[in-house]
Design a binder for these strands. Structure first.
Length: 715
DNA sequence: CTCGGCAGAATTTTT
DNA sequence: TTCTGCCGAG
């Protein structure tokens, strides 16, 4: 037997060697899912069943794709080139670039990010005279995205689906939006998949070609696929049906993004004759941690059901549940324990603080900063989302694709060159009238002598510059072109002249951007990377504590995991619950399960009785998940702040602080229209409209406002 | 056209 | 507390 097979246990080997026909691998946390996937990949190649270019391997994150590529090449003993391995979006982009014309696009189409989408939608909504205060463009972006997640083009959205937003205008706006994207030669994230699906459906020859090419299909994190992704996979796999999906229904945490756990629950029905292999031996966590996680997840209904068996013998430390007075003390507690671990010789990189929502990392950052403990924020502010980077990218996008009006609008007056709102309005008008891009319209207007003053001078200069930069791009490549653009546009100079504290950092980021470009052969390749690879490269080599969200932690593991903020409303998150109801709560529980199972040797769960929201303090109640942890697997303790020093109370079965006795409030009673309420700032008022947690309140003194119900109390 | 100051509202997760 | 967006003055 090949030695790479000998390293697997029986269930893993079965998952690797079952090659023909549909296969679902149900892989519990820490059961060697990635090993199975990569070994299977290598096995297909090494047994000569397919060439590297004949295997399609789909992951959810670029990180997972990278890791798989590395591990496959390690197994093969050579670089794994020519693979179709990547995220759904990256693979779709690759297919779409190759057949753009069939989708009505030119191959240099732009991939818009969320920010661009929202800008575009705002324009459309303003044109439609919608009140963007009342109906935020970002909400519409969400509605459209969810339709796209479900594979719905505007024509397929029924009127019954279109009631929630702006009295049923979302569908029409969606159609406008798609039309606008077509003229911009642009696609958004959802379009990447949607266009490919439409393409495969409309072009039988193309579909047949792809089906012939991809003899084996591997899918990671199948529980997180949405309908569009499911349709995409199904189209490609339907011929030979050599489809292997790996997933864990207990780790499905992306339903808010359109993921359908049902996809995994339904696999056998979708692919009759499918085999199912369960991986249930956990080699990651101690039995104590596993017991805690298992006890928690057992409270969910609608699972496929797996029993995780510990693959590690020593019982290990119990999960610590720590109650503290307030959020400041929680940060001190976590910081203190990290210091102690460091003093004992533990590596900081093996410690993670996993929070429910991004803003929660802040408190820990501050604490670690004062303790001089190095940390990194994983998935926090992303490089390509920074203002200066997006500005620079807009310049490059205009060079790559002159029809990219969104990018053009962004840079047309940046740095200031006298092209204000008035000039821009006539530009837009001319562009719309002639059905041409803004840049082209600018040229036409200038020729006609239509503009005057600073706007004329500014635009003339910009168009001349763009023309010259095109020459630089063609003659000297994209790196030199980028340097030239940043220099000659005055953009770098703008930041050099800026005296604010973050200006030097921004200039440094711009340099970093140019450096990053050198790794790509073409400008287009680089821009695709930017659009599709949202995560920041973090040098894992440095020994730093990891701060991240629970979502961001999926697929990772650490010796020590801190899980702060286990309080009702924070975690389980209030909004997640009222958006998703009972299902929402189950997803929150799966998130908790994901968090616990990241830990190899120790997990510290904490909750605070008081949490500072902005300036004021709010009482909070321990998370219901704490009650669901089996007693045998946890040690509970309360810590009470006294004179600035944290003192750990003797560990009673339940913690001792008085705050803990507070009864859990009934699920937030939504206020109905007519209810009298009191608001910290606006005083007394009467509710005039209520939907979910959003209230419209006519205040006696402050007028009518829209507020969240958390900010008011019954009067 | 640009800039500075003020008012008002704010909390989820991301390919 | 922090951010964004609006408005008025220069």
């Amino acid at each position: 037997m090949a030695d790479y097979l000998a390293r697997l246990n029986a269930e893993q080997r079965l998952a690797v060697e079952t090659l023909d026909g549909p296969l679902l691998v149900l892989a519990g946390a820490g059961t060697g899912k990635t090993r199975v996937l990569t070994t299977r990949f290598a096995h297909i190649l090494l047994t000569g069943r397919a060439w590297p270019s004949q295997v399609l391997a789909v992951t959810f994150t670029n990180k997972a794709a990278r890791e798989m590529r590395e591990r496959v090449s390690a197994l093969l003993g050579r670089p794994a080139d020519g693979l179709w391995l990547g995220t759904f979006h990256a693979l779709s982009a690759r297919m779409l670039r190759a057949h753009a014309a069939l989708a009505g696009l030119s191959p240099n189409f732009t991939i818009l990010d969320t920010d661009d989408q929202i800008r575009l939608l705002r324009q459309l909504m303003e044109a439609a005279r919608l009140d963007i205060k009342r109906w935020p463009p970002a909400t519409l972006a969400g509605v459209i995205q969810r339709w796209k997640d479900r594979g719905l083009t505007p024509a397929r959205v029924t009127a019954a689906e279109d009631t929630d937003f702006a009295a049923g205008q979302a569908r029409a706006l969606y159609a406008d939006y798609q039309a606008r994207l077509a003229t911009l030669n642009a696609v958004d994230f959802g379009d990447l998949l949607l266009h490919v699906i439409e393409l495969l459906r409309a072009q039988p020859d193309l579909l047949a070609e792809y089906r012939r090419r991809f003899r084996y299909i591997l899918v990671d994190e199948y529980q997180d696929t949405n309908v569009a992704q499911y349709l995409w996979l199904r189209l490609l796999a339907e011929g030979h049906r050599n489809l292997c999906c790996v997933g864990d229904d207990d780790q499905s945490i992306y339903s808010w993004r359109g993921a359908e756990v049902e996809n995994i629950l339904r696999f056998e029905r979708d692919f009759p004759g499918a085999r199912i292999v369960r991986l249930e031996t956990n080699y990651r966590s101690t039995p104590a941690i596993l017991a805690a996680a298992a006890g928690l997840i057992a409270h969910n209904e609608g699972r496929l059901g797996k029993t995780l068996r510990p693959g590690i013998a020593a019982a290990g430390e119990k999960v610590a549940v720590v109650g503290v007075w307030d959020s400041d003390e929680e940060a001190r507690m976590v910081g203190g324990r990290i210091e102690a671990l460091r003093a004992e010789g533990h590596k900081l990189a093996e410690i993670a603080v996993l929070v429910r929502a991004g803003f929660q990392t802040r408190a820990f950052e501050e604490r670690l900063l004062t303790l001089a403990i190095p940390y990194r924020i994983v998935g926090g502010l992303r490089f390509y989302e920074r203002q200066e980077i997006r500005d620079a990218l807009a310049y490059l996008r205009v060079l790559a694709q002159p029809a990219d009006d969104l990018a053009f609008e962004r840079i047309v007056n940046l740095p200031r060159r006298g092209v204000g709102e008035t000039a821009l309005r006539s530009l837009r008008e001319a562009a719309r009238a002639a059905g041409i891009p803004l840049a082209a319209a600018a040229g036409a207007l200038l020729e006609r002598g239509a503009l005057r003053g600073p706007a004329r001078a500014g635009l003339t200069g910009l168009l001349r510059d763009l023309d010259r930069w095109h020459g630089v791009l063609d003659a000297q490549g994209h790196v030199t072109a980028a340097e030239t653009v940043l220099d000659e546009s005055g953009y770098s100079a703008m930041w050099q002249a800026d005296k604010s504290a973050d200006a030097p950092g921004r200039l440094e980021n711009l340099k970093e951007l140019v450096r990053a470009m050198a790794e790509f052969e073409t400008l287009g390749g680089f821009l695709d990377h930017v659009a599709l690879v949202t995560e920041t490269e973090t040098d894992a080599a440095e020994d730093r504590v990891n701060l991240m969200t629970l979502h961001g932690a999926k697929g990772l593991e650490f010796d020590t995991v801190f899980l702060p903020g286990w309080e009702d409303g924070v975690f389980p998150n209030l909004r997640a619950m009222d958006a998703g109801g009972a299902k929402g709560l189950e997803e929150e529980r799966r998130l908790a399960y994901v968090g616990l199972t990241r830990a190899r040797v120790r997990a510290i769960v904490s909750h605070a009785a008081h949490r500072r929201i902005y300036a004021n303090w709010q009482d909070s109640v321990p998370s219901r998940f704490l009650d669901e942890l089996p007693e045998a697997a946890v040690v509970r303790s309360g810590a009470i702040a006294a004179g600035g020093m944290a003192r750990i109370a003797a560990p009673p079965p339940r913690l001792a602080g008085a705050w803990e006795l507070a009864p859990r409030p009934a699920p937030a009673a939504a206020f109905a229209a007519g209810a009298r309420v009191f608001h910290e700032k606006f005083g007394y008022g009467t509710v005039t409209a209520a939907e979910d947690h959003r209230l419209e309140v006519a205040f006696d003194k402050a007028g009518t406002k829209r507020v969240l119900d958390g900010f008011v109390s019954a009067a």
